[in-house]
């Protein structure tokens, strides 16, 4: 009898565990936007090009040594080592099979704002949907139209090199529940220029993805917004770009995002050089807006 009671308890526990797991998986399942989310939005590919450069798509999805027109060849392949494994940028060219040529605007919107693929799988947050989630759906619709104008590259995407347990994408739903937060980080009264800067920094240009430190599970520490931290490969540091550390003038910041030159005439290196190649293509007012925003961020020493 004793044995049968124990058996029953064990069975109940297993059942409870299974139900619990099912609930968690259900709650954190990949979820797209409502079907009518994009209704009434009209795409403008020319505006989409500004979104493209502001979003820095080419900084990761084009070859690192691409220049000029090659920046529009979005075949992927750049490698991003991290404590969770090495991520490889996928092909987002206009190729219908290897790239995203068949994607609808809704597919792109779900990818960028929900981190969900057209097949309904979670993306890893190395794709900065945590920031892109703050973009306007109009911008995404425009970007979709622009991406339809870039070349096709038939080279297939390389798989990420990520080991157990991080290769189980279902777990990413839990990560999203904990960390995906599309509220603005900087709140309060902002001038129109500062608001534009906030939109660029916090949403499209996704500056916080590198310049804000992360906790042990890879979530951004919003209370250390833009305060810098170690690089994912552990070999260096992302600089603190809050006014607590960065004492450049707004003109200096705008110049850096245009030419790559610091006020001391050093020039941007590594991935930041790629970022500058993108910000250099923005209208000058957008670089000034970024600078204006950075002056408003809470200073952190």
């Amino acid at each position: 009898m004793c044995v049968s009671v124990l058996k029953r308890i064990a069975l109940s526990l297993m059942l409870a565990g299974a139900i619990g797991a099912a609930i968690i998986l259900y709650v954190t399942r990949p979820q797209g936007l409502p079907d009518d989310a994009l209704d009434g939005l009209v795409a403008d590919a020319a505006r989409g090009e500004v979104v493209f450069w502001a979003g820095g798509c080419a900084a990761c999805h084009a070859a690192a040594d691409a220049t000029g027109e090659q920046k529009l060849v979005l075949g992927g392949g750049q490698r991003f080592p991290s404590p969770f494994g090495t991520f490889v940028a996928p092909n987002i060219s206009n190729d219908p099979d290897a790239g995203i040529g068949r994607w609808s605007a809704m597919d792109l919107a779900n990818a960028m704002t929900r981190g969900v693929s057209p097949e309904g799988a979670h993306y890893y947050p190395v794709f900065p949907f945590g920031s892109y989630a703050r973009s306007t759906l109009q911008d995404i619709v425009d970007l979709r139209a622009f991406l339809a104008t870039v070349p096709a590259d038939s080279k297939p995407s390389a798989p990420h090199e990520v080991g157990f347990p991080f290769n189980i994408r279902l777990g990413l739903g839990l990560w999203k529940m904990l960390y995906l937060d599309s509220d603005w980080v900087l709140t309060g009264n902002l001038t129109p220029e500062e608001s534009r800067g906030r939109y660029l920094v916090e949403a499209l240009a996704h500056c916080g993805e590198c310049h804000t430190p992360r906790d042990a599970f890879g979530g951004l520490r919003r209370n250390r917004w833009l305060a810098g931290g170690p690089t994912p490969d552990g070999k260096g540091n992302f600089p603190n770009i809050t006014p607590g550390k960065l004492d450049w003038s707004e003109a200096d910041v705008a110049e850096y995002l245009n030419s790559g030159f610091t006020p001391e005439y050093d020039s941007a290196g590594g991935h930041m050089a790629l970022v500058v190649e993108n910000t250099a293509r923005l209208p000058a007012e957008d670089r000034m807006a970024i600078a204006a925003y950075l002056k408003r961020v809470p200073p952190i020493e």
């Binding site: 040594d65 690089t231 070999k235 020039s267 941007a268 290196g269 590594g270 991935h271």
Partner: peptide, 20 residues
């Protein structure tokens, strides 16, 4: 002046650590 800056940047991009 611009092309000199581009030459600095192109080498730094490939061969210098990005942190400041």
């Amino acid at each position: 002046f611009g092309p000199v800056g581009a030459a600095c940047g192109s080498c730094h991009k490939a061969y210098r650590k990005s942190d400041g």
